Amino acid sequence: MNKSRMMILGLALCMSMPAAMAQSIPEKAGINSLMGVAPRTADFIKIATVSDMFEIQSSELALQNHDPALADFATRMIEDHKKSSAALRDVVRSGNVQIAQPTGLDESHQDMLDKLKGLHGRDFALQYRSDQIEAHQDAISLFRRYGESGENASLKTWASNTLPTLENHLRAAQALPQ
């Protein structure tokens, strides 16, 4: 399906749904990303929180895998994403945002983590690399869109300030052994 058909389908879907749901479904389906539309604040917080949790948990698995080629990267992911999680919690608490952050992974990230748990050696390293690249590409899109057009000024600033770190993470993930 070409981009214009996807956009038309997405717009039709949005217009046929109640207003409260119209913004969440397009974010989840990737339509907002395709169109460059900022996520709702609730979506941004949920997705950023789950993304950090996945980065931390998958990187902890990478350290348990005892692959020296992954160790430095995984350690950096754990440290940076723990800092990011703490900073996001602080912004949410101090920014008059009445949105509860998720406490666990969503189904798709849990499936990715479960898949990693079943892999070892080179198979693990290749899947971990692939997951890290995909996760950081998604995060960069999310943070860029929210930083440019998000609803909450504090979160917009935080997203924009976090973006360069995510871009560095993507480059580092792409440099992992293939």
Score class of each variant (00 low, 15 high):
R144P: 03
D111Q: 15
A69N: 11
A29H: 06
Y128V: 05
D72H: 06
G121R: 08
L63G: 01
I31G: 04
H169T: 02
E27R: 03
A74K: 02
G104K: 15
W158K: 04
E134K: 13
S85P: 05
H109C: 03
E27G: 00
F73Y: 10
A74C: 05
L119S: 03
I140T: 01
Y146D: 04
D67Y: 03
R129G: 02
I45R: 00
S24C: 06
F124W: 01
M1F: 12
Q101M: 15
R93T: 13
P26I: 02
R122H: 11
A74Q: 01
G118E: 00
Q64V: 09
S24I: 07
H109G: 00
G10V: 04
S160N: 10
D114I: 05
S149G: 10
D123L: 09
E27T: 01
Q110V: 05
P177D: 04
K46R: 10
M1T: 10
E134T: 11
S154G: 11
F143A: 02
A86C: 04
K3N: 15
I133D: 03
Q127G: 03
A173T: 09
I47F: 07
E167H: 07
R171T: 11
A12S: 12
K156C: 10
M6I: 12
A71T: 13
L13V: 08
P102L: 08
T75I: 03
E107H: 08
P39S: 07
